[in-house]
């Protein structure tokens, strides 16, 4: 029996490409996830990723570049979702539910009803490491630079409008323009993530790093860094595992992210009852039960 070598996958060029792309895409999803989750719009990743599938199929049928068509479709869907949900009468989750699912349904409708539909969209639905090309990698690297610059340079404005959108407007933050730019970037990142994670699984990849990071920190800037790092790590490890198990990369990444989230929940739960604390000058650790935010009762001495 041949000995298993952990580094064996690295001899394949397609795998190295896959890992690099997974790190970039995972990091971007983790970063975007912070603003999406903190604005209470976790479903937008799910919604937009489904919506762009319709755009990809329509573009293919019209012989337009699938990615360009999907980006345009995604941006338009995102703008409509923003407009409808900011109008006040329809909540964001409901707007996302109908607009995005309709987009997805268009894609499925066209595939199922068109005879002789030859293109295989399975990679877009579930992610496939083999479908990542060198050009994909370059485009995703470029998108990553733009995304990280966007959040680095507009950090304070984005923090302000995420925390208190109305006051941010009074203080001169151009919330509509930033929303539009964010929507465009989100649509681009979703398209960039399609081949790695797949549109049906992308929502979890956007949300999971942020909620894991949120359990670990109460500092917004640290949340951004942690979420980005967790996103990059879970995507790259998930990609590696997908090679080992010969499974779909998207499903493996999402399952690994869910596993990391479960581990973080377990860690924070244990940490809550069993962590180092002080009584005056004495620092020690032992099991104790919390009362409120800071007080606790000793359970075991």
């Amino acid at each position: 029996m041949s000995e298993f070598n952990l580094f064996q996958p690295l001899q394949y060029e397609f795998f190295i490409r896959g890992i690099i792309v997974a790190i970039l895409v995972g990091g971007m999803n983790g970063l975007l996830g912070v603003y999406i989750v903190m604005r209470g719009m976790s479903y937008i990743g799910h919604g937009l990723s489904h919506a762009v599938f319709g755009g990809a199929v329509v573009s293919h049928m019209l012989s337009i570049n699938v990615y360009i068509g999907a980006v345009i479709w995604g941006v338009i869907s995102s703008i409509i979702i923003n407009r409808v949900s900011n109008g006040g009468k329809v909540r964001a989750d409901a707007a996302i539910g109908i607009i995005s699912t309709a987009g997805f349904a268009i894609g499925i409708f066209l595939i199922s009803s068109t005879r002789g539909f030859t293109r295989n969209f399975e990679a877009l639905l579930f992610g496939n490491i083999l479908s990542i090309t060198y050009l994909d990698m370059l485009v995703i690297a470029l998108v990553s630079i733009v995304v990280f610059l966007f959040f680095f340079l507009l950090n304070k404005m984005i923090l302000f409008m995420t925390f208190d959108r109305e006051t941010a407007r009074v203080y001169g933050v151009k919330t509509d323009i930033i929303d539009l730019a964010f929507s465009i970037l989100l649509a681009i990142v979703i398209i960039a993530s399609m081949n790695v994670i797949g549109v049906t699984l992308l929502a979890a990849a956007i949300v999971a790093p942020t909620i894991s990071a949120r359990l670990l920190t109460n500092n917004f800037n640290r949340l951004i860094v942690l979420s980005t790092v967790i996103g990059a790590l879970t995507a790259s490890v998930g990609m590696y595992l997908s090679f080992l198990f010969d499974s779909a990369s998207g499903a493996t990444i999402v399952l690994f992210s869910a596993g990391v989230f479960g581990a973080v929940v377990l860690y924070t739960s244990l940490h809550r009852v069993y962590h180092e604390h002080s009584h005056g000058r004495i620092r020690h650790r032992h099991m104790h039960i919390h009362k409120g935010e800071h007080d606790h009762e000793h359970h075991i001495n």
Binding site: E166, A168, Y171, V173, F220
Partner: peptide, 28 residues
Amino acid sequence: IGYMPQVESIDWDFPITVEEVVALGLWN
């Protein structure tokens, strides 16, 4: 203009400290 909304509109679980909130008023 300085504006103070009703505090009921604030998400109190948002991970932000007192000094960070105040610094938002000087974001520009």
